[in-house]
Amino acid sequence: MIRKIWAIFRRDLKVNLKDSIALYILFIPILLAVLINLFTPGINETTVGLALLEGDNTSQVNYLEQFAEVELFKTVEQVQERVEERDATIGILPENDRYYLMTQGNEPEGIVDYAKIVNSFYELDITIEDTNSELFDFERTVPPFKKTLVNTMILLISILGGMLIALNIVEEKADNTLSAINLTPAGRLTFVLGKSVIGVLLSVIGTIALIVITGFGTVNLLQLLLVLLVTSLLSISVGFIQGLTSSDIMTAAGSIKILFLPLLAGVLAIEMLGDKWQKFFYWNPFYWAYKGNDLILSQSGTWGQIFMYSGIVLLISGIVYLFLAPKIRKGLE
């Protein structure tokens, strides 16, 4: 069976390397990685934003300005509005004789920790000479925006894997070769697995290339691989169904873009919406995959968390597969 799966994969690869659209898809991960490196700022250019009350504590403002970008607002409500905006600005507000941190809930852990520390420095009267504002203590070497882009591209690459599968299925349909395959001892399961390999490999190899080029090469690869594989299940299922229902390559490539919608919805929900909106996106496997990848890219995810997110993605993808499986089986007859 393995020999036949390998033969089907090698045939697909051979054809894909001769096809310009497929070739483009195969090399997109590298292109994306280079673009991310070109257009995202380095860590030293990244600033941490803090929102404070105007006139509350001038010495505190002066102190914090040494470590972060400080914005001043007249009321607590205005600070809250600022905190709820798209970026990861954190409010520092007075309460009794101390200060508390106002967060939106979706800020990167490192940024919150940084705000806590610089505020503690102020409260403990630690001077600038005694401190180091580099994110050395958090082992962060890349800015949050870059991480967001890389995470989104990882999910995009898994969709491209599905797209490649769809292209190969369309080719089989156009050449009417499915009937010939059905009369070999390969069997339908072998065929499905063989056809899936190229999509999974694109996802895995493309993602590894992406994270290495963009500077995330030190993340836990096993954790990343787990999330990748479960996310690929969804893309593979959709790739098969779109391939079997599309009459030509362009239609297949176009129709698989339907997956971009939940992908973007998941990313935007996590990055832009507050806690109260999150529950509306729990149905979305990309939402959970993004969360899992975020922990992996931050190098802060425990195996328990990764298993939990992967499990949720697997469950949702499994439900989608169960729904699509009869159509895939019928299409392959």
Binding site: R11, V15, D19, E171, A174, D175, N176, T177, S179, A180
Partner: peptide, 9 residues
């Protein structure tokens, strides 16, 4: 097969 069905690529 009556209709040829080979991989054209």
């Amino acid at each position: 097969f009556e209709q040829s069905n080979v991989y054209s690529k």
